[in-house]
Amino acid sequence: MPLWHIYHPVGAYSDQDKQEFARDITKFYTGVGLPDFYVVALFHEIPESSFFIGGEPTGNTVRVVVEHIARHTQDPHLRKRMTEALNALMLRYTKDRGLHWEFHVDETPQDMWMIAGLWPPAPGSEAEQAWARENRPIP
């Protein structure tokens, strides 16, 4: 499960922008075989009076925290490619709008999560493919 927390200035994104951003995020992960419902994007509007960088208020920064839970990789080249691909995904919603952006990716141990009380199936397994086809967890 990728979980994206997108902290952004008030008014930076319309409802349509948020939906498009979430769809682009989802498309990225379903492209590597994850079920749609694994992908969660949460948008957090932060007023300038509550968003500080270096002790100074900012009204033009987007800070993204990505939590990877369903998939991890230890290969440094794959990690670099994935990070660059995530950055490229964000450009339309950050750089192209004149916003400053920062992000990082955390990896949660795979044995520390459940969905609807179920242990997720092994990555790439037939059971996971069934979850993707049904777009829901299946006991």
Results as ranks from 00 to 15, higher is better:
residue 3 L to V: 09
residue 4 W to V: 02
residue 6 I to Q: 14
residue 7 Y to W: 08
residue 7 Y to Q: 13
residue 8 H to W: 01
residue 9 P to Q: 04
residue 10 V to D: 05
residue 10 V to H: 04
residue 10 V to F: 08
residue 12 A to K: 03
residue 12 A to T: 08
residue 12 A to G: 07
residue 14 S to Y: 10
residue 14 S to A: 12
residue 15 D to L: 13
residue 15 D to A: 12
residue 16 Q to R: 03
residue 16 Q to N: 06
residue 18 K to T: 11
residue 20 E to S: 04
residue 22 A to I: 13
residue 22 A to C: 11
residue 24 D to L: 14
residue 25 I to C: 13
residue 25 I to T: 12
residue 25 I to M: 14
residue 28 F to E: 04
residue 28 F to V: 01
residue 28 F to C: 05
residue 28 F to R: 04
residue 28 F to W: 15
residue 29 Y to F: 15
residue 29 Y to M: 06
residue 30 T to G: 09
residue 31 G to N: 05
residue 31 G to S: 13
residue 33 G to T: 12
residue 34 L to F: 12
residue 36 D to Y: 14
residue 37 F to T: 12
residue 37 F to Q: 11
residue 38 Y to Q: 02
residue 39 V to Y: 12
residue 40 V to R: 15
residue 40 V to H: 12
residue 40 V to S: 07
residue 40 V to A: 05
residue 41 A to P: 05
residue 41 A to K: 03
residue 42 L to Y: 04
residue 43 F to N: 01
residue 43 F to P: 08
residue 43 F to Q: 05
residue 44 H to F: 13
residue 45 E to D: 14
residue 46 I to L: 06
residue 47 P to F: 00
residue 47 P to R: 00
residue 48 E to D: 03
residue 48 E to G: 02
residue 49 S to W: 00
residue 50 S to A: 13
residue 51 F to I: 01
residue 52 F to V: 00
residue 52 F to A: 00
residue 56 E to W: 00
residue 56 E to A: 01
residue 59 G to P: 00
residue 59 G to Q: 08
residue 60 N to G: 05
residue 60 N to T: 09
residue 61 T to S: 00
residue 64 V to R: 06
residue 64 V to M: 15
residue 64 V to G: 08
residue 64 V to K: 11
residue 65 V to Q: 12
residue 67 E to I: 09
residue 67 E to L: 13
residue 68 H to N: 14
residue 68 H to D: 06
residue 70 A to L: 02
residue 71 R to T: 15
residue 72 H to A: 10
residue 74 Q to S: 11
residue 76 P to V: 14
residue 78 L to Y: 04
residue 79 R to P: 00
residue 79 R to Q: 11
residue 79 R to H: 10
residue 80 K to T: 08
residue 80 K to Y: 12
residue 83 T to V: 09
residue 85 A to V: 08
residue 87 N to T: 03
residue 89 L to K: 00
residue 89 L to T: 01
residue 89 L to C: 09
residue 90 M to N: 03
residue 91 L to Q: 07
residue 91 L to E: 15
residue 92 R to M: 06
residue 92 R to H: 04
residue 92 R to I: 10
residue 93 Y to Q: 10
residue 95 K to D: 13
residue 98 G to Y: 15
residue 98 G to V: 13
residue 101 W to H: 15
residue 101 W to P: 02
residue 102 E to S: 07
residue 103 F to L: 06
residue 103 F to V: 06
residue 103 F to G: 02
residue 105 V to Q: 06
residue 107 E to T: 09
residue 107 E to R: 03
residue 107 E to A: 07
residue 107 E to P: 05
residue 108 T to V: 15
residue 109 P to K: 09
residue 109 P to Y: 10
residue 110 Q to W: 05
residue 110 Q to A: 11
residue 110 Q to P: 01
residue 112 M to A: 08
residue 117 G to R: 02
residue 117 G to N: 09
residue 118 L to S: 07
residue 118 L to T: 04
residue 118 L to K: 08
residue 119 W to G: 03
residue 122 A to L: 07
residue 122 A to C: 01
residue 123 P to F: 10
residue 123 P to D: 07
residue 123 P to S: 13
residue 124 G to W: 09
residue 124 G to L: 02
residue 125 S to L: 12
residue 126 E to Y: 05
residue 126 E to R: 03
residue 128 E to S: 04
residue 129 Q to K: 15
residue 130 A to I: 14
residue 131 W to P: 02
residue 132 A to W: 14
residue 132 A to L: 11
residue 132 A to C: 14
residue 134 E to W: 03
residue 135 N to A: 10
residue 137 P to E: 08
residue 138 I to P: 06
residue 138 I to W: 13
residue 138 I to D: 04
residue 139 P to Q: 10
residue 139 P to T: 03
